[in-house]
């Protein structure tokens, strides 16, 4: 039984925007490489490689990887534990008992804010687990319920 809930579909868009920004910087590097090749009359294959790198990188980073990631992402907050599943090639399932939760943070960058999204980070004494791209209502609700449940499940470390 994997965790029930998925991330907000808008989160995928946000990831794509992030990836697009990264692709842009790769594009700039590729353009510089092309310009230098032109200026110094370098071999033609450099143009081909530069273009190929930009296209492949953009395809993977903007389309394929976010899709796979989003498909794999699952989370569920139960009374006594939090379960998270994520990963690209290797799917990881993490279990965090409520008694181990020390605090919960939510955060929101400008892009997330624009899409009315937020992410929450769950901290234990040794680890931090982030659930990205939830709607603000979901994030606030989760934060509140986790901190409530974590308070009930008091235990010594």
């Amino acid at each position: 039984m994997q965790p029930k809930y998925q991330l907000s579909k808008k989160g995928l868009t946000v990831w794509r925007i992030h990836a697009a920004i990264e692709s842009l910087s790769v594009l700039v590097i590729a353009l510089i490489a092309c310009a230098l090749t032109y200026y110094f009359e370098g071999p033609y294959w450099i143009y081909a490689v530069s273009i190929a790198v930009v296209i492949i990188y953009s395809f993977l980073n903007m389309y394929l990887f976010p899709n796979i990631r989003w498909d794999h992402w699952r989370y569920e907050v139960r009374e006594q534990e939090i379960e998270i599943q994520h990963g690209l090639f290797i799917v990881k399932r993490t279990l965090i008992p409520m008694v181990r939760v020390q605090h919960v943070d939510s955060s929101q960058g400008p892009i997330l804010k624009h899409y009315h999204l937020a992410s929450i980070s769950i901290s234990t004494a040794a680890t931090i687990h982030t659930i990205p791209a939830l709607t603000v209502e979901e994030a606030d609700g989760l934060r509140a319920s986790i901190s409530e449940l974590a308070r009930v499940a008091e235990d010594d470390v």
């Binding site: 290797i90 279990l95 965090i96 040794a126 680890t127």
Partner: peptide, 15 residues
């Protein structure tokens, strides 16, 4: 009760 979190991981081929 001393374990902070547990992660199980599996790649596509491992599965």
């Amino acid at each position: 009760k001393r374990i902070q979190s547990l992660t199980m991981s599996q790649s596509y081929y491992a599965k």
